[in-house]
């Protein structure tokens, strides 16, 4: 449904994305995951024919974005990062405008608007002026707008940003239910979001595709990337001696605290919390804290990139 080949885009001499390639099958939900500024929005803007790539090619719904942008746009629903709304119009007027612009036949405009309003849960604000709506509702109006022409391809740029937790869950449910019927690309910088909604993930960092995998595969790869934070009594060597007993420990960073305690940040290959706690207590040392810490997204990208290079 969507094929992307070696897309490259420069803004002046600043590279935004480089050699981005991936493919999305019909009915699939693909997540574009990456930190802010990784090139997700640029990729989406190219796919929606908003701006052209510097080089490379892409086909959406069977049409080339460069040769037949109009055909692509007809089959597309796009929710940009900031929902493109006219604050002075009513929700009803806005949706009617978008429906007409998207070439929905006039006898079907009403039913198209009704179904989009229902899907996005906008019934109660249908007659309100968009400018008076909350951020969550604005986001949903943006989503309804994207759904109006029953597009084959939906492109959603950070659809859950700025919403409260309940709304986030609702939108994710909605996206999940839209998959299968529509082919969806959504971008996010939230890892769990991808696990919940997407069938496959493309990870972008600094403009380049770092990895492409299923969420399960991704989680598997990220296993062993947790760290342990241990704070204990550390009179010189005793604490380190305890740690040396464990072959699972890959690396240790230590940091002296006040009142003679030591804080260790330990990279482990498997979960050794139980044994480690016992060993420390057996040694007669006080244990004040023992917890796992996940890597931040940035660190995961770093991890993935370096791992890829080794492999």
């Amino acid at each position: 449904m969507i094929e992307v080949k070696n897309l490259t885009r420069y803004y002046g001499d600043k590279m935004a994305i480089k050699d981005v390639s991936f493919a999305v099958q019909k009915g699939e939900v693909l997540g574009l995951l990456g930190p802010n500024g990784a090139g997700k929005t640029t990729t989406m803007r190219i796919l929606t024919c908003y701006m052209p790539p510097t080089s490379g090619e892409a086909r959406v719904a069977g049409y080339d974005i460069w040769e037949q942008p109009l055909e692509v746009k007809k089959r597309l629903g796009y929710l940009p990062e900031n929902p493109p709304l006219y604050n002075d119009l009513r929700v009803s007027e806005y949706l009617e405008f978008v429906a007409r612009v998207k070439e929905v036949p006039s006898n079907r405009i009403k039913s198209a608007i009704n179904s989009a309003v229902q899907k996005a849960g906008l019934e109660e604000v249908y007659r309100q002026v968009i400018g008076s709506l909350s951020k969550g509702f604005k986001q949903r109006v943006g989503l309804a707008q994207a759904l109006l022409n029953e597009p084959e391809v939906l492109i959603l740029d950070e659809p859950t940003v700025g919403l409260d937790p309940r709304q986030i869950i609702e939108i994710r449910e909605l996206i999940k239910s839209l998959g299968g019927e529509h082919t969806i690309i959504l971008s996010t910088h939230i890892l769990p979001e991808v696990e919940m909604t997407c069938g496959r993930v493309v990870i972008i960092n600094r403009g380049e595709v770092v990895a492409e995998d299923t969420p399960e595969g991704l989680t598997r790869r990220l296993k062993g990337t947790e760290r342990l934070i241990v704070e204990m009594d550390g009179d010189g060597g005793a604490a380190e001696q305890v740690l040396q007993k464990f072959p699972e420990i890959a690396s240790v960073q230590k940091e002296a605290q006040q009142n003679g305690r030591m804080r260790f940040t330990i990279e482990v290959t498997s979960d050794i919390r139980r044994d480690l706690a016992r060993a420390i207590v057996d040694q007669g040392l006080g244990l004040y804290e023992l917890r796992t810490e996940s890597y931040s997204l940035e660190e995961i990208f770093l991890h993935l990139t370096t791992k890829e290079e080794v492999a």
């Binding site: 803007r45 929606t48 024919c49 908003y50 109009l70 746009k73 007809k74 597309l76 796009y78 940009p80 900031n82 493109p84 709304l85 006219y86 604050n87 978008v98 612009v101 998207k102 070439e103 707008q145």
Partner: peptide, 14 residues
């Protein structure tokens, strides 16, 4: 300014 050009330029409007 408001970013609605992104709507205009990504719909089948010429």
């Amino acid at each position: 300014r408001s970013g609605t050009v992104e709507l205009l330029y990504t719909t089948p409007l010429t």
